[in-house]
Nucleic acid binder design. Structure first.
Lengths: 251, 251
DNA sequence: TTCCGCATTTCAGTATACAGATTGAACCCA
DNA sequence: TGGGTTCAATCTGTATACTGAAATGCGGAA
């Protein structure tokens, strides 16, 4: 069902990594639960060597935590951790936007960004936004953020943003689907798109401070979505990533 | 000579990781040079399994780069990359300081920071700062930055800062020793310590914006040191980390 | 002399076997 | 009955052998 398509022509290590990540994010491996290599071998069906590699990769992806005496456990996140990760992403994306603005970008490289902007416009124009429009939004939004990050032209910055956004709840589109069930849905979408537009404008006019500030505020929309979703329980099934939330705040 | 002390009672993986890192940072493995597993086995004297682990760890530490066809190469950094990494660290430390200021910290937890401040004061008081005073400064400065990062109280933020500072040229004390050979040495030290003092003051008074701005500017001192050191060649031997600089700008 | 193809060699990916360490339980003694 | 000690089972860390793929070099043909 959730089986990745390209199951063949993939290294065992990657296969194991995907399988384990899926198990963690879907909550089949509970937070704070220890996960032994042999367990992982049973789950993934590959031998210990690639499983070990996959576990190490998942550790520095942030989903696992090394146990001092050896082995790994599924990392637990507090609501605060998630909010901080979002603020962290906003700060880094703000830096990327500022770099782009201050250093200047060619009109040529702004084109795909503006094109993306136009496509999102067409989506948010409909008033009751359809479910599949939200899906398209998730894709386009991810593209927009990726393009913007690239625009910084700074490999170290791009690298760090990618690492933060690897955590599903910190990624730019982490809480968009949760938002779809909220009454404020359309309004938030319009505001988000306005942020997108302002950032591009700021970069074009080389207004670094403005670009940075807007990107920071933009990330805080995700925090708002999260809080709203947590208050309106019942839509949490839209957020598989929240299986990582430690039990003190959830459940 | 540069042999780590605790050579026994260390896992083979860690031993290999340290040995390889040392080889890279000291420039014995040149940037952009491919490094095969078997080569690494010969260098470190351990078997392929722990070597493989060490290579993966060094990859996400940022010192190595995976080659699509398999294997790794020593990552090359441009001067721009290094400057961006410093700005990146400043931005993240700024976030940490802002969190500390906005959320408030107990007087109790500020004590070690102030103690550190006092010790640095005693060092910078001497006018021609001795060579070993610079060494002490490096240690104390690292402690100050670590304490400040901790003060954010945010695990995700601490984690990211640690990852950025893992690159030797992005670490808070990366260019202090280079600075020691400059005529402006004492002056820069005084300014840096003033930044330290202001940040603590800002945190105490819950001035988030001020704390953030000062930490950002503080990081830019490292950028200044780097540029000065690059102009005044001849002291580059104080910066083993610069072996990673790609040949377009150095050599 | 140059280009193409084949063979050889080297290397990464994987599986597995072995050893040391740690954890958990059970039994014995106080 | 409780605590301590010992033994057993399990797990991680490590080494190594095997396999498939990729790169390189050599030889032949055009």
């Amino acid at each position: 069902m959730t089986e990745p398509v390209a199951d063949r022509a993939m290294s065992q290590t990657v296969r194991a990594q995907l399988a384990l990540r899926d198990m963690i994010l879907s909550g089949r491996l509970r937070a704070s639960e220890r996960i032994s290599e042999l367990q992982a071998v049973e789950i993934t069906g590959v031998s210990r060597t690639p499983v070990r590699l996959a576990l190490v990769r998942l550790e520095d992806e942030g989903l696992l935590q090394a146990i001092p005496s050896g082995g790994f456990m599924v990392k637990a996140f507090s609501e605060r951790d998630i909010l901080d990760s979002i603020e962290l992403r906003g700060t880094l994306e703000g830096l990327a936007a500022r770099f782009a603005a201050e250093r200047g970008v060619s009109a040529r490289s702004l084109e795909p960004l503006k094109e993306c902007l136009g496509e999102i416009d067409r989506l948010v124009r409909q008033d009751p936004v359809s479910e599949e429009a939200f899906s398209s939004y998730v894709t386009l939004n991810a593209r927009f953020h990726a393009l913007l990050t690239e625009l910084s032209g700074s490999a170290p910055v791009i690298r760090q943003i990618d690492r933060v956004a690897a955590l599903p709840f910190a990624s730019p589109s982490g809480f968009v689907m949760a938002q779809s069930a909220l009454p404020e849905a359309h309004q938030i979408l319009l505001i988000a798109q306005d942020h997108h537009r302002i950032v591009v404008d700021a970069i074009e006019n080389r207004e670094g401070g403005r670009a940075e500030a807007v990107m920071r505020e933009h990330a805080r929309l995700a925090a708002r979505n999260l809080r709203l979703a947590l208050r309106n329980r019942g839509h949490l099934d839209l957020l598989p990533a929240l299986a990582l939330l430690s039990s003190t705040t959830a459940n």
